[in-house]
C-alpha cells in the first residue's frame, strides 16, 4: 500500500526473562484496518501492545508512528505526543481513590489539555456522548469502584473513545462483557475503523468475534514466530490448531466461519 501506515515496526523483537516472545516483527497497520491479535496465554499479546504504546522498550528493532504523513521513531516522541496519536485500553485499571464515572471518562481528555486548561463544555459533551454510546448514561456520578466488571470495562472503552486517537490498541476489550455489549463495542470499533478511518489492534480470545468483525489477523506463537495478514488468509483450522495446540474446528455458514474447540485428543 502506498499510503503512510499509522504505525510500523521494523525487526521488532520482544523478550521476557528466559524467553524470546517475538523475533523480527515487520508489520504495518493502516487507517481502515481492524486487526485481531491472537495467541495463547503468555504468548506476548499484552507485551506487544504495551511496547507499541511505548510503555516498555523492545529488545531490538524499532517502532515508528505516523505524524502528519511522516513516520517518526517512537522513542523520539514525548509521552504526550504519543497519547495524542494512540490510545491503549488495558486489561485491568486500578483505582486507588474514589473517582466518579464522569471524572474517569474525562481523564481521556488529559493529553489534549494544557497545564492551566480545564475541561471545556466541548470536552464534557464528548465525555457524555461516549458514556451514552457505552450504555453508561445514567451512571455519571457513580463511584468507579462500585461498577460491575462489565460496566468498568465499558467505562474504560468510553475513556479510550474520548482520547480521540487515530490508532487504538485494545487488550481484550470484550472481557467481562455480556454478548449484547460485546457486539456493541465491536460494532463501535467497526464504525471507527471502517467509516472514520481509524486503525485498531485488538488482543482477543474470542475467535468468532474476531472472525466476524476484524479485517486482519496477527498471530503470535510465543516462540518468536508470528503470522500476519488479511483475515481469510490467516485464520484456518490447521493454523489455529497449531497456535492453540488444541484441535480447532472450522464450520462455514452463511455469515462466515465459526470456530469451535474440538475434543482433546488422547496423547
Amino acid at each position: 500500500m502506498s499510503t503512510t501506515p499509522l504505525l510500523q515496526t521494523t525487526d521488532l523483537g520482544l523478550k521476557i526473562p528466559g524467553r524470546c516472545l517475538l523475533e523480527e516483527l515487520n508489520w504495518q497497520i493502516h487507517a481502515g484496518e481492524m486487526w485481531a491479535l491472537i495467541g495463547r496465554n503468555g504468548s506476548g499479546k499484552t507485551t506487544l501492545l504495551h511496547t507499541l504504546a511505548g510503555l516498555r522498550k523492545p529488545c531490538c528493532g524499532h517502532i515508528e508512528l505516523a505524524q502528519q504523513q511522516q513516520l517518526l521513531k517512537l522513542e523520539l516522541l514525548s509521552r504526550k505526543q504519543i497519547a495524542l496519536r494512540l490510545a491503549l485500553l488495558q486489561q485491568h485499571v486500578s483505582h486507588s481513590f474514589e473517582a466518579t464515572v464522569l471524572q474517569m471518562v474525562l481523564s481521556g481528555r488529559h493529553p489534549h489539555l494544557g497545564l492551566w486548561q480545564r475541561e471545556t463544555a466541548a470536552d464534557y459533551q464528548l465525555a457524555r456522548a461516549a458514556l451514552v454510546a457505552m450504555d453508561l448514561a445514567d451512571m455519571e456520578q457513580r463511584i468507579v469502584s462500585s461498577l460491575s466488571g462489565g460496566e468498568s470495562r465499558r467505562l474504560a472503552f468510553a475513556t479510550m473513545l474520548v482520547q480521540e486517537t487515530k490508532l487504538l490498541l485494545l487488550d481484550e476489550p470484550s472481557n467481562h462483557l455480556d454478548l449484547g455489549h460485546q457486539v456493541l463495542i465491536m460494532e463501535k470499533l467497526q464504525e471507527l475503523v471502517f467509516k472514520q478511518q481509524h486503525g485498531a489492534l485488538i488482543a482477543i480470545h474470542d475467535l468468532n468475534l474476531a472472525a466476524r468483525y476484524c479485517s486482519h489477523v496477527l498471530m503470535l506463537f510465543g516462540d518468536g514466530r508470528y503470522l500476519a495478514g488479511p483475515l481469510d488468509d490467516v485464520l484456518s483450522s490447521a493454523r489455529l490448531s497449531e497456535l492453540y495446540q488444541h484441535p480447532i474446528e472450522q464450520m462455514i455458514w452463511d455469515q462466515g466461519s465459526y470456530f469451535s474447540p474440538g475434543p482433546t485428543t488422547p496423547r
Binding site: 504504546a53 509521552r79 504526550k80 497519547a83 485499571v93 486507588s96 473517582a99 493529553p111
Partner: peptide, 13 residues
C-alpha cells in the same frame, strides 16, 4: 492516581 501505566498511556511522563 489511576496507576502508572494508565498515566503513561494518557501522556504523562
Amino acid at each position: 492516581s489511576l496507576g502508572e501505566v494508565t498515566a503513561a498511556a494518557l501522556g504523562e511522563n
